[in-house]
Design a binder for these strands. Structure first.
Lengths: 217, 217
DNA sequence: TGGATAAAATACAATAATGTTTGTTTTAAT
DNA sequence: ATTAAAACAAACATTATTGTATTTTATCCA
């Protein structure tokens, strides 16, 4: 029988330290990378003793696995904040300006601290079954909620969902690629050119698809 | 005074073991990831004693740093093989088929063993100064040679270099993004749709740019 | 052929990382 | 107020990892 969880001093304290640990782990991924992250470093970063930390998490794996969920949630928040803001400034229309704002928001998202931290875990998941096991469903949930967000915030694309999805994928993949490549080079690529092309492509696809619909009526 | 290097039994032996070590390191990055790679594991993979290994490399850093150059070279070879083959089959024209072949070749490249291994180092370089230090110039060299390759193998784009470069970047970023995202999901994204869009975009840009040139004459 | 050098293996020492155990302080509950 | 339990800290034991030193084996060259 699971005990009813009450809002008590201890449960609150426990929650805050749990979050402090996950935030410390995040900071470690960002500052020293997943490869160099150890329980000792995380504990130091969290300003906590290792013993205390291991009271809340059974072992290292538990911390890492928990941080997958934590970072997924944080990334969703970040995504929401950035894109809602861009959307508010852009209005509901599909224009060059609104698409540029969307791309810039996505760019910020892919360079945000939580996403950078998450990238470390994505790479780690490839060779760590226990991470992959929780990351795959987490990513599915992430995709689902992003899709919902787009559906409700980009009503202009209603009726052309297929094209919307393809453009969304293109944008996500391209920007993820840019963000990733920037790790191996110090020279800034000519982002502006690329962004213009992405805008142009979306406008073309949108025009084509909506024209098809009008034609069909 | 540097001694003239002669082709002797020992020098050959030394070269082959050096390569064996770098190949073993590569295999470790692929199989267990950079984060879990240790000198012991590399030595095991190379079927060599740690002592013997450390005779050829001063320390772990030396192995990792050397593998940046090794993998850059291997990736260039891989790229050449895949794209020359695609190009041979496609002929020199800018058509839907030839672009599809190029994309498929790029897709293979971004999923090849050497590139997967290199990805691990890209991520490691973000938080490891000694790797970044050699990776940045290596990446520059890589970019330069890829650019040369494209220039000589895609003569149809002569005169529209600006567009060619932008499309190239789009293709590289998008496919790197696809390859990277595939690490966090097991479900295969609808690649076909995306590839069609990439082909379409290139054809549009090519048509626009060449039309501009004809118009100018 | 024999001393010198290169390549490789083995053995050793020092450190770092993990997990566990034990102890201490603080809150909860009767 | 006293016992129980939660949150945290400190100390301990074990293993993993690295780097070095020593030893062995094979090749080079005078």
């Amino acid at each position: 029988m699971k005990q009813e969880k009450r809002e008590t001093w201890q449960s609150r304290k426990s929650d805050t330290t749990r979050i402090a640990v996950l935030e410390a782990a995040t900071q470690c991924y960002i500052k020293i990378g997943y490869a160099n992250t150890t329980v000792t470093k995380i504990a130091e970063e969290a300003q906590l003793s290792r013993g205390a930390m291991m009271y809340h998490f059974d072992d290292v794996q538990a911390i890492i696995v928990a941080s997958v969920g934590y970072l997924t949630e944080k990334r969703l928040q970040e995504y929401g904040t950035l894109l809602v803001k861009a959307e508010r400034e852009a209005g509901g229309r599909v224009t060059e300006e609104s698409l540029e704002m969307t791309i810039n928001a996505l760019w910020k998202f892919f360079h945000s601290r939580y996403h950078i931290a998450y990238q470390e875990l994505i790479v780690a998941a490839r060779t760590d079954e226990s991470i992959a096991k929780v990351m795959h469903p987490a990513q599915q949930e992430f995709d689902k909620r992003i899709a919902e967000h787009i559906r409700s915030h980009f009503p202009a694309w209603q009726g052309v969902e297929e094209v919307r999805e393809t453009i969304t994928e293109l944008y996500f993949y391209a920007l993820q690629g840019v963000s990733f490549f920037s790790l191996s080079t110090n020279k800034q690529p000519k982002i502006k050119r690329l962004f213009s092309l992405l805008v142009k492509t979306a406008l073309n696809e949108y025009a084509d698809a909506t024209a098809d619909i009008k034609e069909a009526n």
